[in-house]
Amino acid sequence: MNEEELGTDLKKRIKEVLSGSLHIRHVDTGSCNGCDFEMSTLSNPIYDISRFGVSFVPSPRQADMLMVTGGVTSNLEKALRITYEATPKPKMVLAIGACACGGGVFGETYANAGGIDPFVPVYVYVPGCPPRPQALIQGILLALDQYEEVLKRGE
C-alpha cells in the first residue's frame, strides 16, 4: 500500500460508493483506550479526516460503519449487540486492533471473550497494538470496496 494513494483514494472512493459522506460510530467493547485514542487523532488538524467526508456520529442510528475496538468484555456484550442491531442496513463492521481481531494479549479470560467474531459479522480486520492512523484509513478504504459489492448485491 502506497502512502501517496491513501488520501486521494479515500475521497474518491467515498464519493463513488456513498455519494460524498461516511458516518462512523465508534464502539468500545473493552479496549485499553490505545485504539480509541488513535481513532480520535484522525480528527485532529494534521490528519483531518473530515475533509474526506468522514465524520464520527453520536448515534448508531445515523451510522454507515461501526468501528469496534476491544475484545468483548462480559459487561459490554449486550451493549455491542444492541448497537449492532440499532444500526440501519446496509452496515459495515470493522475490527480495530489486536484485541478485536483475535483477543490480543488478553485472550479468553473470565471477563473477556477474545475477539468480536462470535458476536457480529466483521468486514475488515485491522491488526496492530494500536494500529497507526494510516492503517485505520487503509481499513476504511478496504471496507468501502466490500460495501460497494454489498450494495450491488442489494442486501
Binding site: 500500500m1 481481531c101 483475535g102 467474531d117 466483521v122 468486514y123 475488515v124 480486520y125 485491522v126 491488526p127 496492530g128 494500529p131 497507526r132 494510516q134 492503517a135 487503509q138 481499513g139 478496504l142 470496496d145 466490500q146
Partner: peptide, 11 residues
C-alpha cells in the same frame, strides 16, 4: 504498518 484485510483467513 498496513495489514488490514477483508477475510480472516488472510490473517
Amino acid at each position: 504498518c498496513y495489514q488490514a484485510v477483508n477475510a480472516k483467513k488472510d490473517l
